[in-house]
């Protein structure tokens, strides 16, 4: 449990760095670090398949998507960056306080002492669950991927030359 707490603290620091950091690129890297820490936690919580997905997709693919999007957007000038940075620090000054407050409230009062989780008898192999019990989810995933591909085609379409 001690290692889990250390990992959770690392995750929180990476998240705060992501949210409060000045540079958009560094924020993206912070998000990737958060994903890596979460995937390690998933490995430790007996969920290796989800951890592999989190590591490869969230820490890898999504980071690449964000970095490509950032590289296509014009960066701020030095003066603009200073103004934006000051403004950001002003707007995010309450966040550390809120993080501590909500963390303590959720930790002490989030789960009642007499809470009983519902145990459902199901197959515990992820492949069996995914391919046999939740086939409709797979269908939904395929539809969403096709919709996403079509969305990308529409959004990145070159304007017609007149």
């Amino acid at each position: 449990m001690t290692i889990n707490i250390i990992l959770l603290i690392a995750m929180t620091i990476a998240t705060l760095w992501t949210v409060m950091g000045r540079s958009l690129l560094k924020a993206t890297l912070g998000l990737a670090v958060t994903s890596v820490v979460i995937s390690v936690l998933m490995f430790r919580l007996d969920s290796p398949m989800a951890a592999v997905f989190e590591l490869s997709v969230c820490a890898g693919l999504i980071t690449i998507i964000f970095v490509s999007a950032i590289s296509l957007v014009k960066p701020l000038t030095h003066k603009e960056a200073i103004v934006v940075s000051k403004d950001r620090m002003k707007r995010f000054r309450y966040l550390p306080l809120l993080v501590i407050l909500f963390g303590v409230i959720a930790g002490f009062f989030g789960i009642p002492n007499d809470f009983k989780p519902i145990y459902v008898a199901l197959a515990n192999d992820v492949r069996t669950v995914l391919w046999s019990l939740r086939q409709f989810d797979m269908f939904g995933q395929i539809v969403i991927i096709i919709a996403g591909a079509l969305g990308v085609v529409v959004l990145f379409r070159e304007k017609e030359k007149r």
Binding site: I118, L122, V126, V129, D137
Partner: peptide, 24 residues
């Protein structure tokens, strides 16, 4: 709850949706 199979399949579904949302 010792139901890692079910939750992992749900998480995989969420990750797929997440990627599509991020791309769009």
């Amino acid at each position: 709850t010792n139901q890692t199979g079910l939750t992992q399949s749900l998480v995989i579904t969420i990750i797929v949706i997440e990627v599509v949302v991020m791309v769009i």
